[in-house]
């Protein structure tokens, strides 16, 4: 194996690896962000539902709103992995 082909293989492997890392970061960081956001919303939602059970549906909807950012992260990850 020549030094030239070795470099191409390494470069291809590195590109695939970096893509995987990028996809991981996209999903991981958005998941963390959503978790931090949901902490406050969830605590408030549980408090509000404890006092008034009728608002359970709306409270749940508010709690999962930050999940949308994870979907964006996931889309970015999929694009990275399968483009």
């Amino acid at each position: 194996m020549t030094a030239e082909t070795m470099t191409v293989e390494i470069a291809q492997a590195s590109a695939a690896g970096l893509k995987a890392i990028g996809a991981g970061i996209a999903v991981g960081l958005t998941g963390l962000g959503a978790g931090i956001g949901e902490m406050s919303i969830g605590a408030a939602a549980v408090g509000a539902v404890a006092e008034n059970k009728d608002i359970f549906g709306i409270a749940l909807l508010f709690t999962v709103l930050p999940e949308t950012i994870v979907i964006f992260g996931l889309v970015v990850a999929l694009l990275l992995m399968f483009q």
Binding site: M39, S40, A43, V46, G47, A50
Partner: peptide, 11 residues
């Protein structure tokens, strides 16, 4: 964290 404060304040 702030969660128990948020919970009580909301209630």
């Amino acid at each position: 964290g702030p969660a128990p404060y948020i919970y009580v304040s909301t209630r």
